[in-house]
Nucleic acid binder design. Sequence first.
DNA 1: TTCCCACCTATTGCAGGGGT
DNA 2: ACCCCTGCAATAGGTGGGAA
Length: 296
Amino acid sequence: MEMHEIRYFLAMCEALNFRRAAVRCNISQPALTKGIQKLEEKLGGQLFRRERNLTHLTDFGRLIRPYLEEIQSRTSAAQSAAHDFLYLDKAPLNIGIMVSIGPLRFTRFLSEFQRDNPGIELWLHEGTLEELSEKLMSGAIDLAIMGLPQPLGGRFDAMHLYAERYVAVFARGHRYEGSNQIPFSDLVTEPYIDRLSCEARALVLKQWELHETELVCTHRSHRDDWVQGLVLAGFGMAVMPEFSISAMGLKSRVLAEPELSRNVSLVSVAGRRFSPSTAKFVKDVKGFRWTPPPGP
DNA sequence: TTCCCACCTATTGCAGGGGT
DNA sequence: ACCCCTGCAATAGGTGGGAA
């Protein structure tokens, strides 16, 4: 069954006249007749009773009509959805965000992006490095924001956004408050709260080994909000990227000897063509000033 | 694997004609 | 005069083969 045949049929249902229906469809009357005949042939029954001024739908035609109306309605909806997607109106955009990345550095960008692109519906998906890599490959997400201790290999392109240092976080009144920075050797004597989703976790834990000190780990969690809550409650200190701190009242100092940092990047699948909304996001990310100029 | 071209087939629309 | 159908030509679309 062809779409134009359905269109001709529905025009005939309205006009109940071959000539007038043809005018509505912008075709000649014989073309419309042929179209209706084709449809009748395909459906196996007569749709209209041809009686000059009394041309009308047969019982068979009345039975078929709602189904073909449904097809036309769905087709219009599909065309409308396609238009919205291509012209960035109600266009979905799925972005993966690594669990260890805090919203702090993104709120200004996201606010500008939403203002400039009100038609793009942003969906944020949280996940680990492995989970987001898999979702990128399967197409479940279009882009991912990842913190990378080292460059990604394989089929991925990574666009550098900003670098962030790792800091020690602790509660108010902790002895660290008196220092500008905390050397690792000073870290290993404190009760530690283990961030299981941290991509630098192995590097951090190695410090206890290097300093031949026993690790006193009071709690372990995949969730940064819980880790920060536990630190605030005085259970111990934790190590995390500086822009991942979200809890009010939490204190932090930069880690030193050695310094530890990571690159936050926008990751996409190499060689894969972007959808319009993805292309716009990448363009805006490129144009955004991720590292603010040094203040006065 | 992709692109281009030639050839074949199907579809569409116009002109004209028959029936009422 | 109006409504619908038939025959024919133009056009669009599909297929297969060859080149890059």
